[in-house]
Simulated assay, not measured.
Amino acid sequence: MTAGHLNCTVCPSCGAKLAAKDSRPHDAYGFATVRRRRVCDSCGYRVQTVEIPADVADDVFQEDAA
C-alpha cells in the first residue's frame, strides 16, 4: 500500500478480508465508476466503496509539482 491510498479489502475493525457483496456501475461523478458494497465475514462490518479508473485517478489526484 502506498501513501495516500486506502486498502479497501481489509476490515478496519478486525483486519479480516472484506468480501464484495454487490457491484454496480455508477456515473454520478461524470465518468464511469464502480460502486461496491463490501462486508466482513468475521465481524459483519459493512462499507461502500466507489472505484474510479486509474487514468482518471491520476488526473484527479495529481500531486502538485513543487
Rank of each mutant, 00 (worst) to 15 (best):
T49R: 07
K21M: 15
Y45W: 09
V47E: 10
R24S: 11
A16Q: 12
C40Q: 10
Y45N: 11
P25E: 13
A28C: 07
A28M: 07
R38A: 04
C40T: 06
P12T: 02
S13P: 03
A19W: 02
C14V: 01
V47P: 00
K17N: 06
P12N: 07
R37L: 13
T33V: 13
D22S: 14
R35T: 06
V47C: 08
K17Q: 12
R35C: 04
S23T: 12
C43F: 07
Y45L: 09
C43N: 05
R24K: 15
V39F: 07
V39G: 11
A28N: 11
C14T: 07
D22H: 14
P12H: 03
R24H: 09
A32R: 10
D41F: 06
Y29C: 08
A16L: 00
G15C: 01
T49N: 10
G30E: 04
G15V: 02
S13A: 10
K17G: 04
R46D: 07
R35A: 10
G30W: 02
A19S: 15
G30V: 04
K21S: 14
R38L: 15
V34S: 03
F31L: 12
S42Q: 14
A20R: 06
Y45D: 04
R37T: 12
R46N: 11
V34W: 03
R38P: 00
V39A: 13
T49Q: 02
A32D: 04
R35V: 08
R37C: 08
V10A: 05
Y29S: 11
S23G: 10
R46F: 03
H26E: 04
A20M: 08
G44Q: 12
K21H: 13
R46T: 15
T33K: 12
G44W: 03
Q48E: 10
H26S: 05
V34A: 04
S42W: 05
A28R: 08
G44M: 06
S13G: 09
A20E: 13
V39P: 02
Q48N: 13
D41N: 14
S13Y: 01
G30D: 02
A32H: 08
K21Q: 15
R46S: 15
V39R: 14
A28G: 15
T49S: 11
C11Q: 00
P25Y: 05
D41A: 15
Q48H: 05
G30R: 01
V34E: 02
G15Y: 00
R24I: 03
A19L: 12
G15E: 01
D41R: 15
S13H: 09
T49K: 10
T49M: 06
P25M: 09
C43T: 08
S23V: 10
Q48I: 11
D22L: 13
A28T: 11
A32T: 09
R37I: 05
G30C: 01
S23C: 08
A32S: 14
V47Y: 00
R37E: 12
A19M: 10
A28S: 14
C40N: 09
R36K: 12
P12L: 05
H26F: 14
F31S: 06
Q48W: 01
K21E: 11
T33F: 05
C11D: 00
T49C: 09
R38H: 08
G15T: 00
R37H: 14
T49Y: 07
R24Y: 03
L18T: 05
P25A: 13
R46Y: 02
S23I: 11
R24Q: 14
Y45A: 05
D27C: 03
P12W: 03
